[in-house]
């Protein structure tokens, strides 16, 4: 489903947001609908097409080149390759404007990608306005992510989670996608070298660190190693959890990245530079963060308290 940009981002984005608001009032809206989950709007401004849910940008895409214009954090969804060079199938939770799905279809045409999206209108919007093409290797299930994961008998080499909503009142985290029981279920559906990449809105220092710390602690209770890739153009942090016990550092990952690029397994031009965002230290709030469980997951309180 989501994610996105808030106050402290780069100026061009702020400008884009202002322009977006302007265009919302004065045309440029190519699609608008209310689904059971969101007020969905697709707006064209110059060469950029944006998808917004409840007034907040979810996806940006260049109209000239659909592989450009996306938010940086979606590129961290390629990081699982660093831990598993043999990925053959991927489960993505959250479709939105299909940034990650388009990129996977383009750069890894042989990889089987299944996407779980809760909102049927979002699926139509991604298909009609964001160049998303359901294909033999790209399937979409309209379902809640956890319900799907619970029922599926498949195993995946990577699970990519982008299921957050946000509006002017702050982020909304579906609590049942953030508990220990959820991560246990995800780990069961991953292959031996499986990797989970999980988008959280927050930063490693300060602002909203409590929810990030809690999700880190919760993931760490299930996955032996958990790392971070904070985005520079938004407040997104992509957490990567591995089933592998081995702790790795940046030099090892850069070496892996070089191998992947050399063998043409990964062809995304920015791949190597994105690896530098790697962080392995826990967030500052880790020691006082809560372990989230089905029985006790005060995510709403954490979100409002840390604002």
């Amino acid at each position: 489903m989501i994610s996105l940009v808030n106050g402290v981002i780069a100026w061009p984005l702020i400008a884009a947001t202002l322009l977006l608001k302007f265009s919302v009032s004065y045309g440029g809206t190519v699609f608008e609908a209310a689904s059971p989950y969101h007020n969905i709007r697709v707006v064209d401004q110059g060469n950029v097409r944006t998808l917004s849910f409840d007034g907040t940008m979810e996806t940006r895409m260049s109209l000239q080149d659909p592989l450009k214009g996306h938010f940086e954090y979606t590129e961290y969804f390629h990081m699982p390759w660093l831990w598993n060079g043999q990925i053959t199938n991927v489960l993505m939770m959250g479709l939105g404007g299909a940034s990650a799905q388009r990129a996977y279809a383009h750069y890894y045409p042989d990889i089987w990608v299944e996407t779980v999206e809760i909102d049927p209108v979002v699926f139509k919007v991604a298909t009609n306005y964001f160049n998303f093409k359901p294909a033999a290797t790209q399937r979409v299930h309209i379902s809640d992510g956890r319900v799907f994961l619970r029922r599926t008998e498949a195993k995946y080499d990577a699970i990519i989670m982008d299921a957050y909503a946000k509006n002017r009142y702050g982020s909304f985290i579906p609590y049942h996608l953030a508990t220990k029981e959820f991560f246990q279920l995800a780990a069961e559906r991953l292959t031996t070298n499986g990797v989970i990449a999980y988008n959280v809105i927050g930063t490693l220092q300060g602002w909203r660190a409590d929810i990030l710390g809690s999700i880190y602690r919760t993931m760490k209770s299930v996955f032996p190693q958990v790392y971070f890739f904070p985005a520079t153009d938004s407040l997104n942090v992509v957490l990567v959890g591995t089933k592998s016990e081995k702790k790795v550092g940046l030099p090892t990952l850069l070496q892996k990245a070089s191998d992947l690029i050399q063998t043409k397994r990964v062809t995304m031009p920015t791949f190597r530079s994105r690896v530098y965002a790697f962080k392995s230290e826990p967030p500052l709030s880790y020691s006082r963060s809560l372990l989230l469980a089905d029985d006790f997951a005060p995510v709403d309180g954490l979100l409002s308290g840390a604002k």
């Binding site: 059971p36 809760i118 956890r146 319900v147 579906p174 609590y175 049942h176 996608l177 508990t179």
Partner: peptide
């Protein structure tokens, strides 16, 4: 409603 979401998902329904 919160309890049901754990199994039926965070759906509107």
């Amino acid at each position: 409603a919160r309890y049901l979401a754990k199994d039926f998902g965070g759906s509107f329904y």
